[in-house]
């Protein structure tokens, strides 16, 4: 009878999610009564806030986790880490926070148990597939339109650091056409051909329309990676269930799924 209940909607605000869940539970009871079946067992919810770059991987993790934990429902909100951190600071209710960088996790440190790193990702330069740009140095040529994430966006912050380490930042900076509020904005500008080059996570480049983008890796030795920390919120509705989910992500099955989606070991 569980299948009669539609999959829960992704709702950013935990409060609304609870109400929605209540409505669904009532609907489920009614369906069960109509069909003359037993009541479904009460369902428990784990509310996860996860960085946008984790979407595919975490959806796969959700599907792997739920069969092993009956009567548990994982509800994930995806958004930029910086947006999620701000929502948490403004009082949004959640059980688990998975951030794309440590800076954003640091902003909500007071609200969380001790975080643990569960994956790492690194940034790459992307260009349209037919671009003549073949190296990172080519980004310094006058007139190249470079699109980065804004300072608050992890991928943007790491890109600046990496360019700086290569001593290219001063000559690339004049070419910056836009500081996008999230990585999707960078991807879209390059995919639509408005920008000549952008910087996104390797996982984003891998996911986006294969064949339309080309990725240029940063040289060895340049720090261009980002650690993904995960933490249980102090005011989680059930720290036991929340910890179970975090353990799953950190454990064998979770790690395997993350690897499949291009993430590296922490």
């Amino acid at each position: 009878m569980r299948t009669l209940i539609p999959p829960p909607k992704l709702v950013a605000m935990g409060g609304i999610a609870i109400n929605l869940q209540g409505v669904l539970a009532v609907a489920g009871v009614l369906c069960g009564a109509l069909l003359g079946c037993d009541k479904p067992a009460p369902r428990h919810e784990i509310r996860v806030m996860a960085a946008a770059s984790l979407r595919d991987a975490f959806e796969a993790i959700e599907h792997a986790f739920e069969p092993e934990h009956p009567n548990t429902d994982v509800v994930i909100s995806f958004a930029g880490s910086q947006v999620l951190a701000t929502q948490l600071l403004e009082g949004a209710a959640a059980d688990v926070f998975a951030s794309a960088d440590e800076v954003q996790m640091g902003r909500v440190a007071a609200l969380c148990e001790a975080p643990a790193c569960f994956a790492s990702n690194h940034i790459v330069v992307i260009t349209p597939a037919d671009s003549s740009i073949g190296s990172i140095e080519a980004l310094t040529a006058p007139g190249v339109l470079v699109v980065l994430g804004a300072d608050g966006v992890p991928a943007g912050r790491i890109a600046r650091t990496a360019f700086d380490a290569l001593e290219l930042w001063d000559s690339i900076e004049p070419n910056i056409a836009s500081n996008e509020p999230d990585v999707r904005g960078v991807l879209m500008k390059i995919l639509l051909g408005e920008g000549d080059a952008g910087v996104v996570y390797a996982t984003d480049a891998m996911r986006a329309s294969p064949g339309r983008l080309r990725a240029i890796e940063f040289p060895e030795g340049v720090d261009c990676s980002s650690e993904y920390p995960i933490a249980v919120l102090r005011n989680a509705s059930s720290s036991e269930r929340a910890n179970a989910f975090v353990r799953f992500v950190l454990g064998e099955p979770g790690q395997a799924i993350l690897r499949q989606h291009g993430f590296e070991a922490p």
Partner: peptide, 13 residues
């Protein structure tokens, strides 16, 4: 604006 013109301090931000 953010989609069409991007965000650049002093220019489109």
């Amino acid at each position: 604006t953010i989609t069409f013109a991007g965000s650049h301090p002093g220019r489109t931000r």
